[in-house]
Design a protein around this nucleic acid. Structure first.
Lengths: 106, 106
DNA sequence: TACAATAGTGTACCTACTTGCAAAAGTAAA
DNA sequence: TTTACTTTTGCAAGTAGGTACACTATTGTA
């Protein structure tokens, strides 16, 4: 009963994380940013299949949760850079193992 | 351009994995099974907040993709055990790092 | 003069995920 | 006799997540 209770608790904690990360595109966006900052259009090209609307929405979501930062430059046409915070970059291990699993099993 | 192309490819591959794993409850169910097989009701209690309908659906989904196996026993009342396959258990590292991140940042 | 480029916004729509509730079967225990 | 237990399924309904497409501003280039 002891170990079981711990599992339940852990699952509850993870639910809060997955509320943020569990979207259809969230992991992919973070993964795309692991190798450095990217501009909006670069992300749109990197994450195949996503549309503008969802990318905007997800970026806002991730910024709200301090997983990435947004930096806008007043150029013409405008330039905006997105890059992971420490919190975001700390998902690297998770992402790498997820990719490894994908390679091994899919 | 070279490294970038690789990222795009990796993201495409991961999309196929996330099509299976990306549900609201999927990760949590797998996490619950990491420490051994569980019966249906045990899972329902472990994954706080899930309802019967979704659990059935997700278990079927995961079984279809060989991430877990279902074993039914003709007892009364019926007993059904779910346990991870090798493919499923191989998500352990991913899950553990995800939990670690949760603990560190949430 | 027309077009391309960037980073979005506005509007409208849609469907698929998710939920709630009730019911089945058969035995054991109160 | 009634209730409880387990593993589902059926039905009906709701909501949020996701999609499509057009449009803005400003400058440089062909």
């Amino acid at each position: 009963m002891e170990a079981k209770k711990n599992t339940v608790e852990k699952i509850c904690e993870m639910q809060t994380a997955l509320d943020i990360l569990g979207g259809k595109w969230t992991f992919l966006i973070i993964y795309a940013l692991l190798d450095g900052k990217k501009r909006f259009k670069e992300l749109e090209r990197a994450v195949t299949g996503i549309n503008t609307r969802m990318l905007v929405k997800e970026l806002k979501n991730l910024e709200d949760h301090q997983i990435l930062t947004r930096t806008a430059f007043a150029t013409v046409p405008p330039t905006v850079e997105y890059s992971l915070t420490d919190k975001g970059r700390d998902l690297e291990a998770t992402m790498k193992y997820l990719y490894k699993w994908t390679k091994d099993w899919m």
